[in-house]
Amino acid sequence: MLQNQIQIKHKAGRSFSSNIVLLLVFAAVMLIGALISPLFFSVQNMRNIIVGAATFGILASGMTVILIAGEIDLSVGSQVALTSVLMATLAPISLTLAIVASILATVTIGILNGVLLTKTKMPSFVLTLSTMGIVRSIALVIGNGQPVYGVPRSYSNLANTTVGGIPLVAFLLVAIYLFTWFFLKYTTLGRSIYSVGSNSEAARLTGINIDRITVAAYAISGLMAGIAGLYYTSYVTLGLPDGAVDYETEAITAAIIGGASFFGGEGVVTNTLLGFLIVAIVKNILNLMGVSPFVQPVAIGLLIIIAVGVRTMRKS
């Protein structure tokens, strides 16, 4: 018990200093933005950054939960595409039906991911690589490989709606991150995810039902993919069965820059939020500077190496 407390304290100390590094990187990125272009700090640009990257932000919160559980979910990009197709197909019948059906679909996919994982014990990378393809196929079949029209104008306008000058989706992001933060920190289930991710054997010995925790983590990932898909549909104004490709890597990038570990048990969702904002801002700055699209991934690559490298160097 004492040992445990010491360990937890040690971890808290480390995450505190990673926080500072992350905040410094964030500040540095903002500073560079301000130096590079007078447009950077304009209200319009700030809005553009949030509105453009929100889908990744929502996915990243779910991905953080999965990474803390020591797993990965590669199927979330396909789930976003499926949501957009379901929305566009069902919205002409009823918007409420479309939203409910989409969320039910992605949560079900999440649960299936979790159940298959715990039953087969396959690596989650391999399992979700398979479901990524399967879910993508379902989206393509429903949409017949074509864009699906039918999202009502009132719904597609939501992505561009502002309240008091702040995009609606910014409030959604805050709500999602508050929810995930609260869930991970203050609920038994949330805390159990940390235990399972850091040492599943120890967690099992303390009486935690590991399988249930894993399924729950994937259900949350599905829920977030569904919400991200709802926003994505509003943003692109139609169902795109071949859309949202590689979005899972965007979510993983934000989470690992924010400090989530691939080995489980580590990750703070507020840091993921910072990680997500840093990536979005860097991309925005590169666009404002007109940096060649061929070179842009270099900046994101360096960012990951710096953010993760500083942490792993400290650990060793």
């Binding site: 447009l39 304009s42 319009q44 640009n45 553009n48 509105v51 453009g52 990257a53 889908t55 994505y232 943003y235 692109v236 795109l240 859309g243 949202a244 490709v245 590689d246 925005n284 666009n287 404002l288 007109g290 699209p293």
Partner: peptide, 23 residues
């Protein structure tokens, strides 16, 4: 000329068009 590319993604193209129009 200023230009950018959208990684064959509708959502990203909308975002990047905004970046261009801002200028």
């Amino acid at each position: 000329l200023i230009w950018n590319e959208a990684e064959a993604d509708a959502a990203i193209q909308l975002t990047k068009v905004r970046d261009l129009l801002l200028q």
